[in-house]
């Protein structure tokens, strides 16, 4: 190890413990002297670097942290509250949206979907029968009245027809139940006079304040049903 290399090594790290530098010191007194000088310099540097640390700095640091984490906790609870409130609002809006917005744009689509949804609930050969009087009691809500019964009425009750209170009637049909809806007029759903899919078909009758929709399978004569309804129903003002 030559002198320059040695000096560089010692300057870079006076406590150098490399085998090379130690060996070089043992063989050469001047190198040993140089290494000692630099070690002394390092001690001086060390002393010079030891600037006094402000009193109570560690206490200050701990205090500041304690205060800060306290504030964070306070902020966190506030954030949690805000979060909970936001979730509640969003939830409310969603519920509102799902309940009161229509996924269907016309009466026919909705009527078919409604019928399919409740298909299992009504059997064509059901034994229960609803009287004309109780039907007309329910019809009073829509200011309507049937002068005679259209057939065997299995079921008559209010239901939600796309969010609107409407009357859901199920008559015994030739092969499967015939469904009649009495629905208040609404701008959300466009009127569709005739509609059908593979199994069912339906038609709507438009009156002053309500629509009457008939949905039945293809064995029924919808025209007959429509005619019967038009003849029997009357509307009070």
């Amino acid at each position: 190890m030559d002198d320059l290399q040695f000096r560089r090594a010692i300057y870079a790290d006076p406590n150098n413990q490399d085998a090379d530098t130690i060996a070089a010191q043992q063989n050469d007194a001047s190198k040993r002297q140089f290494a000692q000088d630099i070690c002394q310099l390092d001690e001086k540097i060390m002393r010079a670097l030891q600037v006094p640390v402000p009193e109570g700095l560690s206490e200050k640091l701990i205090l500041r942290q304690t205060l800060a984490s306290h504030q964070v906790q306070k902020r966190k609870t506030r954030v949690h509250l805000a979060l909970a409130a936001s979730v509640a609002i969003v939830g409310g809006l969603m519920l509102n949206f799902m309940q009161f917005s229509s996924a269907y744009t016309n009466l026919g689509d909705y009527a078919l979907a409604h019928v399919y949804h409740e298909q299992g609930s009504f059997a064509n050969n059901a034994t229960n029968q609803v009287s004309l009087t109780s039907l007309n009691q329910k019809m009073a809500t829509f200011d309507g009245n049937f002068s005679r019964t259209l057939g065997k009425l299995i079921f008559a009750d209010y239901c939600r027809f796309d969010g609107m209170k409407s009357l859901h009637l199920v008559y015994q049909g030739k092969t499967s139940p015939v469904t009649v809806f009495i629905v208040p007029k609404n701008e959300q759903l466009s009127f569709s006079a005739d509609f059908n899919d593979k199994k069912l078909f339906g038609s709507s009758l438009e009156f002053n304040h309500s629509n009457i929709i008939v949905v039945a399978d293809k064995n029924e004569s919808l025209g007959q049903w429509q005619q019967n309804i038009s003849e029997t129903v009357s509307w009070s003002i």
Binding site: Y11, A12, I45
Partner: peptide, 9 residues
Amino acid sequence: LFRARNQLK
């Protein structure tokens, strides 16, 4: 490091 000590020395 070498330069720093060198300058101080």
